[in-house]
Design a protein around this nucleic acid. Structure first.
Lengths: 156, 156
DNA sequence: AGTGAAAAACAATGGCG
DNA sequence: CGCCATTGTTTTTCACT
């Protein structure tokens, strides 16, 4: 599954994760490769899974999604079954953008995006807290977002 | 700047944020619109800024980026100047994928992606902590990522 | 607001150096 | 890996409803 990436590939990926709307000719111009070579390399990277997919990045504000929150969750009863149910639930919740298990005293970190604080409260109180496995929830609300590019650091 | 979005727009956006590689004809098939209408609506949404950009989503593992961490930062001296320097720095750091100011006792939440724990340690000790404004740093490492789609919840 | 067809742009492939 | 030519797709525009 692993692929050998050369300098061209890395440059290509670095540009594509920022702007996937460029044509192969434009990409080639930026990295010093012909359009046909760019096409071939892209296909290879897509097949290898290095490029997972292409996405449109939307503006949350424009869609009425004003509130981003980071929610730390501690599970109480550490039964396998309860933990599994919790994982299934957060995975299925559309408000949950990210869910990670953590080291340290928090078990999970969730990134949640909702239209307003009222909805955040509803999500926490009606969805998260009633879960049997959930012991404690601590949410921090993002007041201002300095950076949100989610660009992977590629050696340049 | 605000735009009126109808049901077609919302459906279109919901699909595009998951898969921007579909052709206008394919998109039209899914939402019941002709390719030309899809094209026109996309342009409108791009111009209005609802669609910010198109991106390739890369596989961090395939690129040797094995460690994701959430780093909570508390600032000590709350001088305007120090805070500004801190913001400038995290914005410029490629390892920082996201940076938000928070409510509660943490001032900032950073999402950091690096190749390994050694690099995380270097970033925290050599970049973050030496900052004059930084009082305290508490990092949680993501052991497992259940969900990482960063898909906005659009009413369906 | 929408369709459908024509025109223009682009991606993808194969052959050659 | 560049370059070129070709083919098939796709986007975009235009005339029309």
């Amino acid at each position: 599954m692993s692929v050998a990436l050369d300098g061209f590939d890395v440059k290509l990926l670095a540009i594509l994760q920022e702007n996937a709307a460029l044509t192969n000719a434009e990409l080639g111009g930026k990295i010093g490769l012909s359009a046909s070579q760019v096409s071939r390399r892209r296909q290879k990277l897509e097949e290898a899974g290095v490029i997972r997919r292409y996405r449109a990045a939307l503006d949350p504000e424009a869609l009425g999604l004003a509130v981003t929150a980071f929610v730390g969750v501690t599970l109480g009863a550490h039964s396998k079954e309860n933990a599994r149910r919790f994982r299934d639930m957060v995975t299925a919740m559309p408000e949950v953008q990210e869910a990670h298990t953590l080291t340290g005293d928090l078990d999970y970190m969730l990134k949640i995006v909702v239209p307003d604080l009222k909805t955040l409260s509803r999500v926490i109180n009606d969805d998260l807290l009633p879960q049997e496995a959930v012991h404690h929830v601590r949410s921090s609300i993002a007041m201002d977002t300095l950076k949100d590019d989610n660009l992977l650091p590629l050696a340049r």
